[in-house]
Every structure is written in C-alpha cells, then in structure tokens.
Design a protein around this nucleic acid. Structure first.
Lengths: 232, 232
DNA sequence: TCAGAACTGTCAATTAGTTTACAGTTTAAG
DNA sequence: CTTAAACTGTAAACTAATTGACAGTTCTGA
C-alpha cells in the first residue's frame, strides 16, 4: 500500500502520528485499505477471527452487542482515526463486539502478524498499544460511570456531546451530528426505548438545547449542554 | 522484601506466576507490603498520584466512583490476586476510581520506576501488562453490556456470581459471599436504590435462590442463578 | 452493657419508563 | 413517480423504580 493513499485520512489520528517514522512506514507498507459498504458487517461479536487490527480511515463504524433476547446495545460510533479490534488481536480471544459499517467506509487493516513483527524489532511499539488500551479503558469507565450514576437526561446530553466530538459539523443552526442517528439507535446507546428517547429529545428541543430533524440532531446550545453534564 | 513473605498470597494470581522467575524476583525485591485498615482510603478518584501499581495480597478492596451529586457507584470488590492502579501508572493521568480497604488488607505496592526498570531490561514484560489491561477491558465491557442490556434481576444475579467467584466460601447452606455486603452497597453496584435491592433480594430468597443474613448473602442454588444469567 | 450507629424490612405516594398502538412523515429503491 | 420501508410523534394503560418514612434488628465501641 502506498503511503500517500492513507496518510491524508490518518492526519486525525494522533496515536498513529506519534509513531517513529520507521515503524509508521512498515505499518503502512503491509497494511491494506479495505472498503466496506453501508450496513456491511466487519465482524460479529464472539467471532473467533482475531487476526487483525483496524483503523477507521473514512466513514463511520458502529460498535454494538446483542443480548440473548435479541436486544441491541450500541457502545459507540467510531469516526476516522479511531482504532478497533485490538483486544481480540492482543489476547487471542473472541471478538468483544459486532462491528458494522454505519455508512460506506474505508478501513486500514493491519495484520496481527505484521504487528508482531514490528514488536519483535521495536519492542517500544508496545508503549503505543498500551496507550491505545488505556484510552479505551478510560472511555469504558466513563460510560459505566454515566450509566450507573446519571439519570437519563444527563446521559443523553453526554452521548450527544461525544457524538458531536466525533462527527460534529458546524452549521448555521449549531453543531450537527453528521451521521444517521435514528431515535431507536440513540436509545440503544442509552439503554432505553425509542419512545422515551423521543420524549427526551422533544424536551431538549423545547428547552432550546437541540434541534431534531429526520435521523439527525443539531446541538444548538453546546455551552448549556456541557454545563448539564459537568454539574452532575 | 523477602520472597517468602508474599509468595503464599500470590499463589492465586496467575498473572504474577506466569512471569519468568528472574522478573518475578526483581519485582518482589523492590515491592513493599503495605497494610491498610478497614475503611482506609488508598487513593481518591482524580488524585494525581500515579506512581504505583498495587496487588491485593489479603483482604478486600472496594473500587468506586462518585458523581458530583454525591451518588456513589461501586464498580468492583477486588479479592487477593487482583491488581489495580495500572491505568494511571501506565498513562500518567489521574486515578480513575476511589480505592478503599473494605476490610483490613495487605497490598503489594510496586513502584512505577521499578516497573519501568524491569521493562527496560525485559521488554517482554509489556506482554504481561497488556494481558492485564485486556482482562480489565473485557470485564468492563461485560459490566456495560449487563447494565444496558439486562433487567435488574439478571444484573443482580450476575453480580452475585461475580462476587461469589471472588469471595465465595462453601458453607452447609451454599456458597457464602464472605465480605460485608450491605444492601445499600449492592445497590450501588447495580445502580439502584437500597429499597429496590432489598425487594429483589427477598424475591430471590422466596424463589429459593439465595439466603440473606445481616450484611451477607448465601447463594443456595448456583445452577439456577447461572442459568438466569446465561439465558438472557 | 448499653447507647448509638449501621442495617433491614416494609409501605404508601409518586415518578419514570415500557409497551402497544397507530397515524403521519421522510426517504430509498425500483 | 410511486410505493414500501424506515422513521417520528404521541397517547393511554401499565409496570417498575424512587423516595421518604418509620419501626425493628444487629452490631460496635466507649
């Protein structure tokens, strides 16, 4: 894979940019750029395939899991620059989540064998993996704290901010979350139903915090939304 | 620190035992055995102290966080053999949780500088740290999945099993969770109130699943409790 | 040993969330 | 351009969880 193909989309990814040039080159040489179409599954929760690590180059990737009863929980939507698949790759166990292209996307696929080769040569590469893991752990802890400690409205505010951070686009009306976000899926992020999500969104709208459109949310008053989350 | 002092209590900890003998020795030489008394705080959430990694040698350690409003969430009770403090130690940021001795306990304290020294000499030590992190991530993901996907009764069942796994002691009546576990704290693990927890526990008792005593729970029918969690 | 602290059990009133249902809207696909 | 699919908005009936209150129990420490 040629360097110029992926470098532009990797600008956003600090983790990758911090690597020594030599390592970055080797990673890129062997990595492949793989296209996935809207709704295509990259892998399923509990799959035994654990041979690769992925970086989102473009598009949006949905990370979710399913209960036995068929209820779905959405953990996150990954924007370009984010990595996934590192857990199964590193511990050799099954995939923790179902990963799906939430729109047409390109992924950078790095094989486990290539990572291991790089590590053998530059053991310091481990530091970068550890950084990746620590970031993920802090994120997961934030999610747990929010879900067990905060009431639904605060959790909604928190998630909207996270989504705006990844997918926010400035518009005249405010910061628009630029992915398809039906109320049902937003509910699956919060662990609540479509109807309750709708009610909450309407309330936020009446309070002048957001504007809702078909499958889209625009954050009109970032300051006030942030204040909600901070003060709880 | 002499090897024979800590080896017995580290038997339970597979992660430690997997280390090459040379590394294990070096770790133990410089590590210190620190006593903490019941209710003593090891460190607070958001503390900037990030200079050590701890292993529970004996006792029980409570991992919790607090909301602005003062509501408390208990993430876990750590039994001997478990490690904590690795995130702040590895990424150099603030402590993720408040850590408190839930009873008189001994901890093995390993300084960041010692870990770094060992790493410089045996880079493969990173593999062990990564294993530690991956385990923690899978645990956190399980917690998230349970809290967003499962109704309260299933979550209670799941947590009781986890606690029994760490602190279970066989008794004539069943497996007793051998730490103080007031219903309020159990509620803080589930993100629900003391009263709701009480009601649920009583229901479980009526169903013959558990027996409740003052600050203690005995699991009478492990098979049925496990089935509850599996089938959902 | 006894007073206070910590904890349990329970209830009634209230609030929050779920479910079912359905009509209306927006979009995607042929 | 049209029709089916996906999505929104809303309401009523229902269920689950919270809150505040209080009497009773078990433990702890002076």
């Amino acid at each position: 894979m040629k360097q110029h193909d992926i470098l532009p989309t990797l600008q956003t990814n600090s983790w990758f940019n911090e690597l020594p040039a030599a390592i970055r080159l080797r990673l890129m040489e062997n990595a492949t750029r793989v296209p996935f179409t809207h709704k295509e599954i990259i892998h399923w929760q509990n799959d035994d395939d654990n041979c690769a690590l992925y970086c989102v180059l473009s598009g949006a990737i949905k990370v979710s899991s399913c209960s036995w009863a068929g209820k779905e929980a959405v953990l996150a939507y990954l924007s370009p620059g984010n990595w996934f698949g590192e857990i199964a790759m590193l511990d050799g166990l099954h995939r923790t989540h179902t990963i799906q292209a939430h729109q047409d996307s390109f992924l950078l696929k790095v094989l486990k064998s290539d990572i291991m080769e790089i590590i053998a040569e530059y053991p310091k590469f481990y530091e970068h993996l550890i950084k990746l893991l620590c970031e993920k752990i802090r994120l997961l802890m934030m999610v747990i704290e929010e879900t067990t400690l905060q009431p639904l409205p605060i959790r909604l505010a928190g998630r909207l901010l996270m989504l705006a951070d990844s997918f926010g686009v400035d518009t005249p009306q405010g910061v628009e979350i630029s992915i398809h976000l039906p109320q049902e899926e937003l509910g699956q992020m919060l662990g609540t139903s479509r109807q309750s999500t709708n009610k909450l969104l309407k309330r936020f709208q009446q309070q002048g915090l957001i504007e809702t459109k078909y499958r889209h949310v625009i954050l009109k008053d970032l300051t006030r939304i942030k204040a909600m989350v901070q003060d709880s």
